[in-house]
Amino acid sequence: MIRLNQLSMHYMLGESRIDILHEVNLEITAGERVAIAGPSGTGKTSLLLLLAGLERPAAGSVRFDDRSLGELDRDQLADLRRDCMGIVFQSFHLVPSLTALDNAALPLEIAGCRDARARARVLLDKVGLGARLDHYPGQLSGGEQQRVAIARALVHEPKLVLADEPTGNLDDRTGAAIGELLLDLNAQTGTTLILVTHDMAFARRCDRVLRLSGGALTEMQFESDDTHAQPA
């Protein structure tokens, strides 16, 4: 489903060049669960933005369903994200003037789905917000806002879910429930799941764990309680 070919991205910090990705090659198959780990500030979020077509690489290509994102214009990329991707940002990006229900239903409303609110209501109930449907983002805690954002990302059952620390702002119990929801969607619908996480217990439930550091992606191997990294 996803292929990175010689993908490079960097930014300048003063006169220093910081490589986020350096000539990375990677393939992710449909239905696969992939976790991305690594130190803070190494570009894990930037990698998700590249995969979503929200950032452009310095060199190389990102292919999704055999389409090169670099060959699509802004409208085509927006259509691709609307139809095929669910994205969970750390900063939520909820619409402040919409209720939790309306925020969660938004992708389906944009697509013209008649039962958008009914489907959003079911998913919000699954993430524990069945009693908060009519509350606005400003009336919700950070953890509740994150659950609304996750429901919005999953409501249209996308082919690909990109999640940036989806359990990071949640208590252990709620975080575990959200993790189960993401994994259940993957199992039930074949959705491909790529997530950035510092929760290694959650990461190890994925098919692969990749570590991003120094511009390189390496695949982590787990043996008992030890972890080892090999080139991805």
Rank of each mutant, 00 (worst) to 15 (best):
D19Q: 13
V127D: 08
R121V: 03
I178W: 01
D171M: 11
L170P: 10
V127Q: 00
A120K: 01
A201I: 15
A163K: 01
L21I: 09
L108C: 10
P158K: 05
F89M: 08
A151K: 00
D164K: 03
P158A: 15
D65R: 04
R119P: 02
S97W: 03
Q76A: 15
T189R: 15
S224G: 09
V24H: 06
S8W: 06
P231A: 15
A105N: 07
E71L: 08
N5W: 04
T29S: 06
M1F: 00
A78D: 10
S91F: 11
R147W: 02
G60A: 14
R204W: 14
R82Q: 12
A177V: 10
K159Q: 11
K159L: 13
G214A: 11
T29I: 13
Q221D: 12
T189C: 15
A78W: 05
E109L: 11
L72N: 08
V95D: 14
L129I: 01
I2K: 00
D184V: 02
A232H: 04
R114E: 14
L26H: 02
G168C: 04
G130Y: 01
F89E: 03
G215R: 09
L185I: 03
D79P: 00
P57Q: 08
I178L: 03
D79Y: 03
A52M: 07
S224R: 07
G214E: 14
G168K: 04
A37H: 05
L47T: 14
E223D: 10
R205Y: 01
T192S: 05
S46C: 07
G179L: 03
Q90M: 08
G214D: 11
N103H: 10
G175R: 04
P166I: 09
A111F: 10
P57V: 05
R74E: 15
I150F: 09
C206P: 09
S68F: 06
Q139K: 04
L160M: 12
H135T: 08
Q146I: 10
G31N: 09
C113V: 15
G168V: 04
C84H: 10
D66F: 03
F89R: 02
E15H: 10
R114F: 04
L98F: 09
H22M: 06
M85F: 07
M220S: 11
R205P: 07
T99H: 13
L217N: 05
Q76W: 03
F202D: 03
I194S: 00
Y11C: 14
D226N: 08
F92G: 04
D171C: 14
S61R: 06
N103E: 12
T192Y: 00
R63P: 02
D225P: 04
R17S: 12
L69N: 00
L193S: 01
A131T: 08
A177W: 05
Q145C: 14
